[in-house]
Simulated assay, not measured.
Amino acid sequence: MTAVRKATMNDDVSRGIGRRTLLTLSTAGLAALATACSTRLGGAATSEPVPAPAVAVGAGDSASPGGAAPLCVLVPETGEGPYYVPDAQIRSHIVEDRKGVPLRLDLTVVSTAHGCRPMSNVAVDVWQADALGRYSADGKTFLRGTQVTDAAGKLTFRTIVPGWYAHVAPHVHFKVRPDAHTQSSSQLFLPEELLLSVFAREPYSRREAPAHPNTRDDRFEAKGRSLTLRPVVDGAGYRASFVVGIA
C-alpha cells in the first residue's frame, strides 16, 4: 500500500497529470442531454430520512444570471491530492466499517467529442474522508473503490457523506481513466445546507463543525460550485447523480 502523508494547503491543486477536459452537465441541461445521449439517471437506497434541502437529482447548477443554463460547462481539474492510492478494489460498496449518513452516487461518463455518447469500459476511482475527516491508510481500504462503466456509461458507488478536515470543503475525489494513457481527476461537493444538517448527527457531531464548511475554502469558491451535487433524500441518506463528459 502506498504511504499516505498529511495534507498541505496546496495539495489538492498540485499534481499535474495527463488530461482530458472534464465537463459537468447543468441541471437545466439534463433533459437535453437525455435526448442527445439516450441516458437516464436514477437509483435507490436505505432507512430513516434525514432532513435535506429540496433539490433535484443532477449535476451542479451552472445557470447564467439572466437565463437558462448551458448544456455543458467546462470545469477545471482539481488534481488528485495526497491521498490517492492506485489499484483500489473493484467494488460499488466502499463504506466497510465506517459510520455515517449513506450517500449513493450514480455517475455517467459520456464522450462530448461524439455527441455526448455514453462511454463503456471506463474506469472511475473514488476516494474520500470518513465522518471524522480521516482517509484510509496503512493497509486499510475504507472509502476507496473503482468501478467500470457499463454499456450505458453508468456506474454506482455506495458511500457516506464525507466529513471535513483542515481548511477544505468536504468532497469526494474521483479519477476518470478512459484508457491506460489518459486520466483526469476532480472532486464532487455537497450543498452547504445539507452538510450542516448531516454534521449535527452522529458520528459527525463528535467534533464541532465549521459554520461554513464549503465557503470557508477559497478553492471551493473558485471552482467548486459547478462540481456541487444536487442530492435528494433517499431512505436514511441521500442519492445524487452526476454526468462527466470527456472531450
Results as ranks from 00 to 15, higher is better:
T2G: 00
S14P: 00
G18D: 11
L23Q: 08
S26A: 04
L33V: 00
T46C: 02
S47D: 14
A54C: 08
G58L: 05
S64K: 06
P65D: 04
P70C: 05
P70S: 05
L74P: 13
P76E: 13
P76W: 01
V85I: 09
Q89V: 08
S92L: 05
V95D: 06
E96R: 14
K99W: 07
P102W: 10
P102T: 10
V110G: 04
A113R: 12
M119K: 06
S120V: 07
D125S: 11
V126Y: 01
A131G: 05
G139Y: 02
K140L: 05
K140W: 00
L143F: 00
R144A: 01
R144G: 01
A151C: 03
F157D: 12
R158T: 14
V161D: 11
V161G: 10
G163S: 08
A169V: 06
V172M: 13
H173E: 10
V176D: 01
P178T: 05
T182Y: 01
Q183L: 08
L195C: 05
S197R: 13
A200M: 12
R201H: 09
E202V: 02
P203V: 07
R207F: 09
T215M: 10
T215V: 09
R216G: 13
R216T: 15
K223M: 12
S226N: 13
S226Q: 12
G235F: 14
G235V: 15
G237S: 15
R239N: 11
F242Q: 14
V243N: 03
V244I: 14
G245H: 01
